[in-house]
Design a protein around this nucleic acid. Structure first.
Length: 631
DNA sequence: GGTCTACTAAACACGC
DNA sequence: TGCGTGTTTAGTAGAC
């Protein structure tokens, strides 16, 4: 019993590991909290190492600030003589939706200025406002520069004092306080710049072109909102008292992005807010189209549509565009809440982009693979369409016409139910409803190998899809995978739950089936040893268990190689899941249900598995022919 | 339609 | 007594 609970805890741990990358965030936040929860006040009880560390951090901060200033100075020097980036003015500029752009606090660059001027979209009044704001910004930069100089002098002074007079707690506290003040000053600068940019964007004065390296995204990469600063801030906050950190709400919200979700539950809930997704705020979706419409229709806005504010979780009714702008400026001004919402949105977008990139990469690999291996022109489009359809759901604007989902009339995509085929993921198995009668290894007397499972391992680990193997095959596999080729019943259980998400539910049912199989089949031999009872596999019995059908059954071979065996199940699986998973596209990922991404993986891997499976039997059926050729 | 096979469910016994 | 383990039986369903 103890063993069972222990292993369950272990599997829970793995489940956490399999989860989103948020675990790191939690860890980071946890460590921060832990540092604070110690209840000690580092500013008072600071040690020599802490002081050195703090000074090092301060130096780093100063270095970052120095870089920041240098960069801005360079940009200012270039402001008059800069050529505009290469861009065809007739071509509609690619614009980053405000929802994305406003997450990247940055100062408006000379290039931007020039771009704005080139676009000739500004009225004289707007230009004046812009210039005033830019001047104010430059003033702020000068202030920062002066502050930086003072900080540097103080730091040198403190270093000298430390060298000569040793370390006194009061001084250490002063260093920490000054360090904090400096950080705050930097943060305020960032905030001001962000606010400035936001105001420009809200007024429609600024559009951002991601394709141009010299434009606003560049400062981000160069550290205008430096990751170093974020890291630095985290280190600083972890070394300071809780009072100090909580006393700077805006700062902590701004820079401790990894802790936003944990420190502000109300903000975290935005992710779960259905409005956030239904509003189409996933700005990875057709940003080009949004920006185009924004340009073509001056009264359109990515955050405004159908008389409703599309700010995540808002949905305030705005009768006209002007009232929307008022609403936007009043309700969604730059404050903690909006900043946190932006952060959340940014994370959502990042996740989606990551997912998209992954799937694109897979698609590319598939295309490359099939292009190399297959000489049949008809064979390639089949799997390509499968994945394209999946990709389509994520980014309709990027999908080519040929990647549209199959219609039921498409000859290569029949909707006939799956009746047979090796390693088939069916609608039934996808949704884990009821027993299935699909046998992979046993059917053709080809024991599943580690490769068979490994190919689909990640998929089965994460998706609650019933593996198309018999219990006997799985038990055998579990035992053979063990170092000593023997497992206790509990270890077999653990293998099942570890390898297959499907077996993490309904334990009573499948465990009973496992026991039943162990007892029923002669190929499983129970052996008593010091550990207790362990189960081994009698390979002879296992091979005897079924007659060899594959070599002597031409129709079966034909079936295995038929397009029906490959294409039909895959298409059926895809189409069924397209129909049934259209809603839980992303929402079910966290619940363990197969997403379309997983489905794509499954289809891909099942395809590979099927191909390899047939390849392994090539000598029996049609030597020298590829599966596609056999089709 | 019969047979084989696998799966599920359940009952029961035994040991800890 | 409860739980895990092991065995056995019965019913059902898919594949051949």
């Amino acid at each position: 019993m103890m063993q069972e609970s222990g292993t369950e805890a272990k599997s829970n741990g793995s489940a956490i590991q399999n989860g989103s990358g948020g675990s790191n965030h939690l860890l980071e936040c946890g460590s921060l909290r832990e540092g604070r929860s110690n209840g000690e006040t580092p500013a008072v009880d600071i040690g020599a190492a802490d002081l050195a560390h703090a000074q090092q951090q301060q130096q780093q901060a100063l270095q970052v600030a120095r870089q920041l200033l240098l960069q801005q100075q360079q940009q200012q020097q270039q402001v008059s003589g800069l050529k505009s980036p290469k861009r065809n003015d007739k071509q509609p500029a690619l614009q980053v939706p405000v929802s994305v752009a406003m997450m990247t606090p940055q100062v408006i660059t000379p290039q931007q200025m020039q771009q704005i001027l080139q676009q000739q979209v500004l009225s004289p009044q707007q230009l004046q406002v812009l210039l005033q704001q830019q001047q104010a910004l430059m003033l702020q930069q000068q202030q920062l520069q002066e502050f930086y100089k003072k900080q540097q002098e103080q730091l040198q002074l403190q270093l000298l004092q430390q060298q000569h007079a040793g370390k006194q707690p009061k001084e250490q506290q002063q260093v920490a306080t000054q360090q904090l003040a400096f950080q705050q000053q930097l943060l305020q600068m960032q905030q001001l710049q962000q606010q400035h940019l936001l105001s420009l964007q809200r007024q429609g004065l600024l559009t951002i072109q991601p394709g141009q390296p010299a434009l606003p995204l560049q400062p981000l990469a160069q550290g205008m909102i430096p990751t170093e600063l974020q890291q630095l801030w985290k280190e600083v906050t972890s070394a300071h008292t809780a009072e100090e950190t909580t006393g700077n709400n805006h700062s902590s919200l701004d820079l401790t992005t990894t802790c936003v979700s944990s420190s502000a539950p109300s903000k975290t809930s935005l992710i779960m807010n259905p409005h956030a997704s239904t509003n189409g705020q996933l700005s990875v979706h057709t940003p080009k189209r949004e920006s185009l419409s924004h340009e073509e229709h001056p009264h359109s806005h990515p955050l405004y549509g159908h008389g409703v504010c599309k700010w995540p979780g808002c949905e305030a009714v705005c009768e006209d565009f002007q009232s929307f702008l008022k609403h936007l400026n009043s309700e969604h001004a730059l404050d903690d809440r909006s900043t946190a919402q932006c952060r959340v949105q940014m994370q959502v977008v990042q996740q989606l982009e990551l997912q998209l990139a992954k799937d694109k990469e897979r698609l590319q690999a598939m295309m490359t693979h099939l292009h190399v291996k297959s000489t049949e022109p008809k064979a390639a489009p089949q799997p390509l369409n499968l994945v394209s359809s999946v990709t389509l759901s994520k980014s309709a604007s990027e999908a080519s016409p040929q990647s549209l989902p199959h219609t039921p009339t498409t000859p290569t995509a029949p909707l006939t139910p799956v009746t047979q085929g090796p390693s088939v993921i069916t609608t039934t198995s996808m949704h884990t409803v009821g027993p299935i009668r699909r046998r992979y290894s046993d059917k053709y007397n080809v024991p599943i190998s580690s490769a068979d499972i490994a190919q689909n391992q990640e998929f089965y680990k994460n998706a609650e899809v019933r593996p198309p193997f018999t219990y006997a095959s799985l038990i055998r596999q579990a035992i053979l995978e063990s170092p000593e080729k023997q497992l206790t019943l509990n270890e077999i259980y653990n293998w099942f739950t570890r390898m297959f998400a499907y077996f993490r539910r309904n334990a009573a049912t499948w465990k009973n089936a496992v026991r039943h199989n162990l007892s029923l089949h002669k190929c499983f031999v129970r052996v008593e040893n010091v550990k207790g009872a362990v189960w081994t596999v009698d390979e002879v019995e296992f091979q005897k268990r079924r007659p060899q059908k594959i070599s002597g059954n031409p129709s079966l071979i034909k079936n295995m190689q038929s397009s029906h065996a490959y294409c039909t199940p895959l298409n059926a699986a895809l189409q069924a899941s397209m129909a049934e998973n259209s809603i839980p596209l992303y929402t079910t990922a966290s619940m363990g249900n197969p997403t379309l991404g997983n489905l794509a993986s499954a289809i891909r891997e099942e395809l590979n598995g099927a191909m390899e499976h047939t390849n392994s039997n090539e000598s029996d059926s049609s030597p020298g022919r590829s599966p596609m050729q056999a089709v």
